[in-house]
Design a protein around this nucleic acid. Structure first.
Length: 186
DNA sequence: CGGATTTGACCCGCGC
DNA sequence: GCGCGGGTCAAATCCG
């Protein structure tokens, strides 16, 4: 999984139309569909649930929405209570779904994988990555939906305080692709 | 040889 | 209090 051709094969909208239409119909059903977000954090009153709402809205907003899209930026309390009396830091979290065949979306940063766990109700494992830049505590996790193998959920945690280490070409490419599959509101 | 990955153990919060 | 699910650590391993 070191190097991979970053190719986004032309995705026929019909393949995902079932998915999105499914989403747009039953909100309650959507919950089960979007359990990825629900399981990202426990059912807190805030947090990624807001994102889930965002996803619902965005999916509802466009009957002509080409692919499944979901986007959200939330601030979550993530306690680094690992150490003794550390302060809980509130770092922004940012999750989105992408249609991709590869799990690893090269966003131009260098990531070191530090964990992998199986997720309930999902046959695909979730991978945990951390930015290797010194002093950069940005983390991200990548998970694939078992329902739609073509959907990859990437969750960023924290923000980079340094420059991208690789050429922006890749990133732009990815961003471009992401705009296709998601209504980017940034 | 050095850095990235793998992978099981460990830790912690939460629900029952 | 215990078990479960999720997140992280760290030693071993891999690979350039």
């Amino acid at each position: 999984m070191e190097h991979y051709p970053i190719l986004f094969p032309p995705q026929p909208s019909s393949s995902s139309s079932s998915y999105s239409s499914h989403l747009t119909h039953l909100p309650s059903n959507m919950l089960s569909n979007n359990q990825v977000f629900g399981s990202l954090h426990h059912n807190n009153s805030s947090g990624l649930l807001g994102l889930r709402e965002d996803a619902k809205v965005s999916s509802l907003e466009g009957p002509g929405a080409p692919q499944m899209e979901s986007f959200g930026g939330v601030e979550n309390e993530v306690k680094t209570g690992r150490k003794k009396g550390e302060k809980k830091v509130r770092r922004p979290r940012f999750a989105f779904q992408t249609r991709s065949q590869v799990d690893i979306l090269d966003d131009g940063y260098r990531w070191r994988k530090y964990g992998q766990k199986a997720v309930k109700n999902n046959k695909f494992p979730r991978s945990y990555y951390r930015c290797t830049h010194q002093g950069c505590n940005v983390k991200k996790q990548v998970q694939r939906l078992s329902k739609d193998e073509g959907i990859v959920v990437t969750t960023y945690e924290g923000m980079h305080t340094h420059a991208i280490e690789k050429s922006n070409d890749n990133f732009e490419h990815i961003l471009n692709q992401m705009q296709i599959y998601s209504t980017f509101g940034v």
